[in-house]
Design a protein around this nucleic acid. Structure first.
Length: 381
RNA sequence: CCGGAGUUGGCCGAGCGGUCAAUGGCACCAGACUGUAAAUCUGUCGGGCUUCGCCCUACCCAAGUUCGAAUCUUGGACUCCGGA
C-alpha cells in the first residue's frame, strides 16, 4: 500500500470540489493549490522571498532542463534543488515527458525511452524511466512524476492507445526504479502516476484504471489542453478520470490553465494545478485582474490606453510595488524593455492565481463554492 | 555668396525608368500564449470598396522628357557639410 499523504478537510455539497492538505517532506500544501512554474530552478524573475510573500506553497521544477543545465553533478554537489535554490518548501518535478512532446523536432521515442537532441547545444541525451527517476531523486523533489508519453490532441485513437499503454509500462518501470532509489538513499519523496488517454473518453477510463493498479500516492492527469481542444472536451477528459481515481488521493492536473479552467476543474475534483499562463503572459504584458466578485479580466498593459493611466497596478496587492506603481509606469517599463516590468507583472499574475485558489479553498470550506463556480467568468476590459 | 550632399508613408530608412502603395526597423492597433527552446510569436499598418480582387491619392513643390517617373531634366523651397 502506498503511503497516505492526503487529508480531505471539506467537500462541496454540489460538485466534486474538495479542500484538503497534502503532506510532503518539505511541508504541507493546502489544496486546491496553484503551483508556480520554475522550470530552470527559478520562477522567472522572482526571488525566494517574493515567492514566500506570494504565499506559494509548492513550485515546479523540470527534469529535462535541470538535467541539461546546470547538470546532475552540480545539483548533486549542491545537495539537491532545495538547497541549490534556497527554496525550503515542496517542489514537484515534471519527468521530462512533456519535453518529449513539446520538443518534437529534436527527439525520438522508442519503447526503451526518449532520445533528445539538447535544445542548448544539440548533444544527444537518452532519457528512460529509470534515468528520469535518478535525476528526480538527485533533484530531491517532494513529488516526482513518472516518465510518460504525451501526444498532440489531434492524434488517432490507435496511436493514443499505443502511447497510453507505453505510458503504463513506463509508469511501472518508473515506480520500480523510484522505490529502489528510495531504498538506497532513504528519501521520503513521492512518485505520482500519470493517467493519459488523449481525447478518447474510453481510453481515459482505461488509463485511469491501469494507473490505479500501480498504487501511486497521487496522480497527475496528463495530456489535457495540448492542442486547442474545446473547453467541453477538456472538462470531460478530466471528469472521466476523477470519477474513477480514488477520492483519498490528491489529483494534480498537468498544465492547466486559465482562471476559468481552474474553477471548472476544481468542480470536477482536481486539487493541484500548474501552468505557465500567469508567468509567461506576465512577461508578454498581459495582466490578470479581479473584477467584482465573480469576474476577472486580462489587461494588455502595453497598449496606448494605459499611457496616462496613473491608477495603481493593483490597489489590493500585498506588494508595495503593485499598490504604488501606476499602470502608466508599468507600461513605460514594458515599452522600454526594462527588467523591472517582468518582475512586477509576474508578481501581479501569480498573486492573482494564488488568491484565486485561496478563495476557492475558503469557499469549499464554507460551502459557497457552488455559486462561485456557476458565476465565475472572464470579463473583457 | 560659391561648391557638394540631401528632401520617401507616424518616425528612422531602403529603393534610383516598368514586376512599387513602395524592402527593413521602430511605434501604433489587433490577436495568440494552458506539464516554459517564449522578456516570445502572428496579423495589420495611405484612403475607399461588391476585399483571395478592384478603384483612388501618393515618394518636398512646379513644369518637362517618356508608352511609362519615387527613380531622368529644369526651376523653386527647405536641410546638412565644406569654402569665402
Amino acid at each position: 500500500m502506498s503511503k497516505k499523504i492526503f487529508e480531505i478537510q471539506a467537500k462541496c455539497s454540489k460538485s466534486k470540489a474538495r479542500a484538503g492538505v497534502v503532506k510532503l517532506p518539505h511541508g504541507e500544501v493546502k489544496t486546491p493549490i496553484f503551483m508556480p512554474i520554475g522550470t530552470q530552478g527559478t520562477v522567472k524573475s522572482l526571488s525566494r522571498d517574493e515567492l514566500e510573500k506570494l504565499g506559494s506553497q509548492i513550485i515546479l521544477g523540470n527534469t529535462y532542463h535541470l538535467w541539461l543545465r546546470p547538470d546532475l553533478d552540480v545539483l548533486q554537489s549542491a545537495g539537491g534543488l532545495h538547497k541549490f535554490s534556497s527554496w525550503e518548501k515542496p517542489i514537484l518535478t515534471d519527468s521530462g515527458g512533456f519535453q518529449a512532446f513539446s520538443l518534437a523536432k529534436i527527439r525520438k521515442f522508442s519503447e526503451e525511452g526518449v532520445t533528445f537532441s539538447s535544445h542548448l547545444n544539440g548533444e544527444k541525451r537518452f532519457l528512460s524511466p529509470e534515468e528520469s527517476m535518478r535525476i528526480q531523486t538527485v533533484i530531491g523533489s517532494d513529488i516526482a512524476l513518472v516518465l510518460d508519453e504525451c501526444l498532440p490532441a489531434e492524434i488517432s485513437k490507435v496511436e493514443a492507445r499505443r502511447a497510453m499503454i507505453r505510458t503504463r509500462n513506463w509508469a511501472e518501470r518508473s515506480r520500480d526504479a523510484f522505490e529502489k532509489l528510495r531504498h538506497e538513499t532513504g528519501h521520503e519523496n513521492n512518485l505520482f502516476g500519470i493517467p493519459q488517454g488523449a481525447q478518447f473518453n474510453d481510453l481515459r477510463v482505461e488509463s485511469a484504471k491501469l494507473t490505479m493498479e500501480l498504487d501511486f500516492p497521487g496522480y497527475s492527469i496528463g495530456g489535457v489542453a495540448n492542442g486547442g481542444e474545446p473547453e467541453e472536451v477538456m472538462y470531460s477528459q478530466v471528469l472521466e478520470q476523477t470519477e474513477i481515481l480514488e477520492d483519498e488521493k490528491p489529483r494534480h492536473l498537468l498544465g492547466v490553465g486559465t482562471p476559468k479552467d481552474i474553477v471548472e476543474m476544481v468542480a470536477r475534483g482536481i486539487d493541484m494545478f500548474d501552468c505557465v499562463m500567469p508567468t509567461r503572459n506576465a512577461r508578454h504584458g498581459s495582466l490578470f485582474s479581479k473584477v467584482g466578485e465573480y469576474g476577472y479580466s486580462n489587461i494588455k498593459i502595453k497598449t496606448k490606453r494605459y499611457e496616462k493611466d496613473f491608477s495603481p497596478i493593483n490597489s489590493d496587492s500585498v506588494f508595495w510595488e503593485l499598490r504604488n506603481y501606476s499602470k502608466a509606469y508599468l507600461r513605460h517599463l514594458f515599452i522600454s524593455k526594462e527588467l523591472l516590468a517582468y518582475r512586477l507583472a509576474t508578481l501581479n499574475n501569480l498573486e492573482f492565481y494564488l488568491n484565486l485558489t485561496t478563495e476557492i479553498r475558503e469557499r469549499i470550506m464554507n460551502d459557497t463554492f457552488d455559486e462561485f463556480w456557476k458565476n465565475y467568468k472572464q470579463i473583457d476590459s
